[in-house]
């Protein structure tokens, strides 16, 4: 009797520490943030002292051109980063999918960029983009081309390039793994039927890799909204608002403008955006599984 009781309690005992910590340090803060977003709140007040203002913060942001600007910058950044990284990463995987000697050494070198601190990545690129001493402009000088004002006129592009440098290997490695676990029989059959390399890619490899590719893209997309340190170090959001992504704007609203309520409302907008993406990902996964199950059932019926 006592052992049965103990056994029933076991899962809860295993879960308890994680559940408690996440409740205290994640769920409670998130609730607290929603609560705080309805208040006119500055850092020197406790939340109880702050005045309740209803939806004022949300309405203010809804009409705030700066917020729009930064939302657009964020979406642009996320869109370009994910698209370009997917194209390059998957393309390289398709190109390099063969027996390579020393592949493990290569992979080690490719994952180096993403293990290094974002702060340091920003620092390296800020140096390389430097208008006078930077690597790129020195190179342009040496071959006689005019200098480019990387972090001035082309700040967003430069920031996107840095992110592509850091995260393309992630997509490359994942799609290479997906590619190498494809069923050999399908590829073999295609080759025997005389499909060209290009046809194999379009009709067999890409469709079979699709589930992994979509999950990868969504993971990258969600991570693209978390990028902050690289941009902070490289441009501090400037010039103007040209690289001020939402995460950066939240942190500046909270620390520089000292308007915690507005920052909380902004965080909520960002969270809603991400939630929609996540729900989309879930729905897609479910749909994929359902389709696979249906196909399996169909195959079994026929046989």
């Amino acid at each position: 009797m006592r052992t049965a009781m103990a056994n029933r309690l076991t899962p809860y005992m295993f879960m308890a520490p994680a559940a408690i910590i996440m409740a205290i340090a994640l769920m409670y803060p998130l609730g607290y943030m929603v609560w705080g977003s309805f208040r006119d709140w500055n850092p020197s007040q406790t939340i109880g002292e702050a005045e309740f203002v209803g939806l004022k913060n949300y309405i203010f942001l809804w009409n705030d051109p700066n917020f729009h600007e930064s939302l657009i910058v964020t979406l642009k950044f996320a869109f370009f980063v994910v698209t370009i990284e997917m194209v390059i990463g998957v393309g390289l995987a398709l190109l390099l999918d063969r027996e390579i000697r020393g592949i493990s050494v290569l992979r080690t070198m490719f994952i180096l960029p993403m293990m290094i601190a974002p702060v340091v990545v920003g620092l390296m690129w800020r140096y390389m983009y430097h208008p006078t001493v930077g690597t790129f402009n020195r190179f342009l000088d040496s071959i006689g081309l005019p200098r480019v004002d990387w972090l001035g006129d082309h700040a967003l592009t430069s920031v996107i390039i840095a992110d592509i440098w850091q995260w393309t290997p992630f997509i490359f490695i994942l799609s290479l793994a997906a590619l190498q676990s494809l069923p050999r029989s399908a590829l073999e059959a295609a080759r025997i039927d005389g499909a060209t390399a290009w046809q194999q890619i379009i009709h067999i490899k890409l469709p079979l890799m699709m589930p992994v590719l979509i999950v990868t893209a969504l993971l990258r997309l969600i991570d693209a909204f978390k990028v902050l340190e690289v941009i902070l170090v490289m441009t501090e959001g400037g010039p103007g608002l040209s690289t001020e992504i939402l995460a950066l704007r939240i942190s500046r609203t909270a620390t520089e403008f000292r308007e915690l309520g507005v920052a909380a409302a902004m965080s909520n907008y960002l969270l809603i955006l991400l939630l929609l993406l996540t729900v989309g990902m879930f729905a897609f996964n479910r749909w994929q599984e359902a389709r696979a199950a249906r196909l399996n059932a169909l195959v079994e019926e026929e046989s």
């Binding site: 340090a25 994640l26 803060p29 998130l30 607290y32 943030m33 705080g36 969600i222 909204f225 978390k226 902050l228 939402l246 995460a247 950066l248 939240i250 942190s251 909270a254 915690l260 920052a263 909380a264 965080s267 960002l270 969270l271 991400l274 939630l275 993406l277 996540t278």
Partner: peptide
């Protein structure tokens, strides 16, 4: 999915 920036204010 929660970005660290979202946790900044409440934390």
């Amino acid at each position: 999915m929660v970005p660290p920036a979202v946790l900044l204010v409440p934390v």
